[in-house]
Computed example of a mutant assay.
Amino acid sequence: MDNTLWADRGQQLPGEASETEPQATCVGVSRLGSMQVPANAFSVWMQLRGSSWVEGREGKFRLRRGDWIAFERDSRPHVQADRHGVCIGLTLGADALRAAGALADPGLYAGRGKIELHDARMALRLWRSSSTRLSTLAGADTTTIVGTLRPLLLQLAAIQGEMTANIPLCPGRSRMRKRQVFGRLQRARMYLDGNRDRVVRISELAELTSFSSWYFSKTFHSLYGESPQSASARMRLEHAAELLGSSQMMIGEVAAACGFDNCCSFARAFRARYQMSATSYRKKMAP
Rank of each mutant, 00 (worst) to 15 (best):
L13E: 06
R73A: 07
G66P: 12
L63M: 10
L192Q: 02
L153C: 10
V199H: 06
A39L: 02
R175H: 12
A96P: 06
I251F: 08
A7K: 02
W45D: 08
S174P: 15
F61W: 03
E253G: 05
Q11G: 07
D95G: 09
R112Y: 04
V146K: 00
G147E: 05
R112D: 11
S18W: 00
T219K: 03
P106F: 06
Q36D: 00
S230R: 10
A100Q: 05
E21T: 15
V37M: 06
Y109D: 01
R273D: 08
A233Y: 00
H221K: 12
R187H: 06
P228I: 02
V27E: 05
L92F: 03
L137M: 08
D119T: 15
R125H: 10
L152V: 15
R189W: 02
L137V: 11
G33E: 03
N40P: 00
E21P: 01
P151F: 10
D74Y: 01
L205Q: 07
L223E: 12
V254E: 01
F260I: 05
W214C: 07
R177H: 11
V86L: 11
R98V: 10
Q155R: 14
L108T: 10
A206S: 14
L205M: 13
Q180T: 14
Q186I: 09
A278C: 08
G33L: 06
L126D: 15
L185M: 14
G56H: 00
S51K: 01
Q229G: 11
Y109E: 04
T143E: 14
G107A: 03
C87F: 00
Q36C: 06
L149V: 15
A81W: 03
R133C: 12
S135V: 08
L90Y: 04
Q12Y: 04
T144A: 11
W214E: 13
N40H: 04
R125V: 15
S18M: 03
G194V: 01
S75H: 01
I88G: 13
A104D: 11
T143N: 09
R196A: 08
G111E: 07
G28D: 09
T136H: 09
A100R: 01
A96V: 03
G245H: 08
A157Q: 13
P14S: 06
Q160D: 12
Q160L: 14
R65W: 01
